[in-house]
Design a protein around this nucleic acid. Sequence first.
DNA 1: TTTAGGG
DNA 2: CCCTAAA
Length: 680
Amino acid sequence: MVIQKRLDYGYNGFQVPTIPKASRSARRKRSYKKKVEDNSMCAFELLATVAGNLLQERESTPISSNVSPEKLLQERESTPASSNVSSGRVQPTIVKDTIKKELLDEEKPLKLEPCDQGSSDESVFASEFGLQGSNKDRVPDNGICFEDSVFVKSRKETGKVTSKTKRCSAGCAESYKREVGAEAQKIGTLPNGNVPDTCSSEYPMDLDTKPPALVSSDSSVKVPLCTDPILHGPFPRYHDDVKLVSKDDDENSSGCTQPSTVTLKTFRAPPRIGDRRIRKLLASRYWKVAPKLKDGDLFNSDGDMKPVFRRRKTCYTRQRSQRSYPFKKRRLYEQSSVSTSYRGISSEGNSSSFKKVKDNELYFGGTANGASGASCSVAAQDSSSQSKDSHVKLSIKSFKIPELFIEIPESATVGSLKRTVMEAVTALLGGGLCVDVLLQGKKIRDNNKTLLQTGISHSNKLDGLGFSLEPNVVNSPPPLCPQDPPFLLHCEAQPLTRYPITPTSGISDASLTLNPAMNNFSNCVDSDHDSVPTPTDMSIDKVTLDSRALVAVPAMSVEALAAVPLNRKSRRSELAQRRIRRPFSVSEVEALVQAVEKLGTGRWRDVKLRAFDNAKHRTYVDLKDKWKTLVHTARISPQQRRGEPVPQELLDRVLAAHAYWSQQQAKQQVKPQTETCLLV
DNA sequence: TTTAGGG
DNA sequence: CCCTAAA
């Protein structure tokens, strides 16, 4: 009987999902847990926040010039309170007192190491991570598109899928197809009355033999013209194997990038863990090490890592506003305009006009010379007051973004370039970095030492004091990356004058090095690198921007810095963080629609495997939700729709597919009974 | 783990 | 997106 059912209702050889219970028990009224907002902010978080705000300001001026009014509007809307919040948070006067009090009360020195979570935790995370990395085949944390990773993963998946979904032998495929096709015809509700997809055996084959998906600038979906309808599903507009390889996600693929690819990816130093579970476990960011990462395979970290900042209203707001441009895989405003070019992109013609995109079209530092670190002008000043309560005053005058390499088509607009850079910078700041303190070139490992003990005191010259921002590498001792070469970029010392906090007795310069993972980059891979949704075109020219051009000059006050070490518990409570919102791009929607047309609703896992296998951040639940919203969107008037407009054509397909599959489900509900009766 | 739905 | 009952 089981088989019968399958034959009767299964399309494509997949088992048709059981009919959902019509009566869903009443939804529990769950009250959202109140998320404890922590006031404490680690130093870098705060710095980043401030810097971010500054960047945002910049963004709103020049960069936005090329942005459409609509976009601006959206951005505005999404960041209404950011300035207020941030300003409030960094309010000098308030902070000052608070800090002082904090220090006195807790007798704790300034905590400059955001990642100072204690080694125990780190190790836990590390092990957790390792576990994930090895067992999570569903959501591979390592660079999915690495050849190695991909294949390993594919195998796993294949095996899994095969064993789980092998409901139709290759042999029956043909007859099955015909059978189903006939039914489809009878049903007649299919837009084109085509025969549904074939059998599930496609999976293994797809996974194992399919060449790396093509990645195109705007849509990464391979969209071959439809061929024989009989070979496709009920909505056979595209090839079966169309798989979404959104730059967004597929950015994961260095391996997926083919010569003809015109994807522009960005890789940012701070990697992040893609797995949500992990995220929940971790309060802090950490790096994931990709075992087989090859040199040069830099990955962009995923926005999911941003959580640390996300929590903060300030940051969150900011994020949202920037999400539109995600260095990370966000692509709210992904240039849909570019879509026109994706088809045109071919390996033939322009290949010569653009260089093959490197694994990382855009990445921070970590270049061969490895010399580009983000650096910033820091001035440290020690207070003249002499006592145990003395405070070390530090002021970071500005951040210098590390060397930034960007590859972008010559045809790209200046606006896109700006956005790309913006994203890169944003990603850098928002990534999982931890601050390390260096004194005289030596990293101070003992987080429990007081500044005084360490030699950082108000009475000493802080010439040798430096900070470095590094990825939170899990596999390495908390604050440091062992293998990290003492990489420190000293910035020109600049007299600290703007924000003298207290009667400054002496001013020393400290250098702060933003060292976003460049050091052992080859080992630090983000499971979720994102590519930059930058409009791409036929030719790509390498544009290397002088990092200086990106210098954000947030003259930060000491207070701001000091404001950091307030609460301890903070990050702990940040466990369950909301994932960053990542609007579906048109190409993603297309992939989704296509997959659903073929597989039907109710088989989100398959949809996920089929079309979003590479999009680690898209879970089947996400896809299901998206479908839900798509259906809704399709039903409302265009005026009521928001966000990146989805082509009407797609929406029509959504409705058609939805109608079709709904009908199928309805039928299934009836048939089983009939069959049962017959059998009895 | 997935699905399905409400929030 | 989140959360979770159900399967």
